Amino acid sequence: MRLIFLGPPGAGKGTQSQRLVTRFDIPQLSTGDMLRAAVASGSEIGRKAKAVMDAGGLVSDEIVVGIVADRIEEADARRGFILDGFPRTVGQADALERMLKEKGLTLDAVIELKVDEDALIGRIEKRAAETLARGEAVRKDDNPDVFRKRLQEYKAVTAQLTPYYRERGLLSEVDGMAGIDEVTRQINDILAHAEA
């Protein structure tokens, strides 16, 4: 099972990914984790990434796709994987599609968690207020202003992937505002069709 989850920050992608990791015994691949591992390994692509990062630059799509290509060759990803945080742009999606095709692979599904952004902001504000009320520091991600900025970035760039994957017949939408178990049920229904 090879999947991509789409949806804005706070939509529940991480929660649902963890349930699928357990169900299918496949890894959730975070680009940040893969990048750090590639640099630590000293692989050729890792050295390229390190040089760019050390110079203060952003790692190119070519390098990120190379890191993903290397990672999905590892034994735990042979049965499939869930991509987390990648692709973020249509250019990355094109590069991913080409790389998978070269390996004789395709995506089984792209699942978008549809959410009410105002409700998400409300959740973050409530969580931040509760954290402060307990006398604890608010996580950076739980700062409503930071969260709004992340939502704007998502809408400006990553939301373009919705029509991209819809045109390819890969996109399925799930009501991300439903309860966690109901979201899981909807995802399982989509994956049952993808496996058929």
Rank of each mutant, 00 (worst) to 15 (best):
P8H: 14
E182I: 08
A133L: 01
R36N: 01
E173F: 04
D142L: 08
S30P: 11
T31G: 11
V39D: 00
K114M: 05
Y164K: 08
T184R: 07
V52C: 10
Y154T: 00
R98M: 06
M99D: 11
K13E: 05
V59K: 10
D181F: 10
K155R: 14
G42T: 04
I187A: 03
K13Q: 05
L161D: 09
V39T: 03
R23I: 04
L6A: 05
K50E: 13
G32D: 08
R19H: 13
S60G: 01
S60D: 01
V157Y: 15
R19V: 11
A156E: 10
D145T: 11
A77S: 03
G57V: 02
A192V: 12
E195P: 10
I26F: 11
D76M: 01
L58S: 07
R2W: 00
P163S: 06
A40H: 09
E153C: 03
D94I: 02
I63S: 05
N188D: 15
E173G: 13
G176P: 02
R148P: 02
Y154K: 03
S172E: 09
R78P: 10
L151A: 05
G32I: 05
H193A: 15
G169I: 03
V110C: 06
A109F: 01
Y164N: 09
G85C: 08
F147D: 11
T131C: 10
L105H: 09
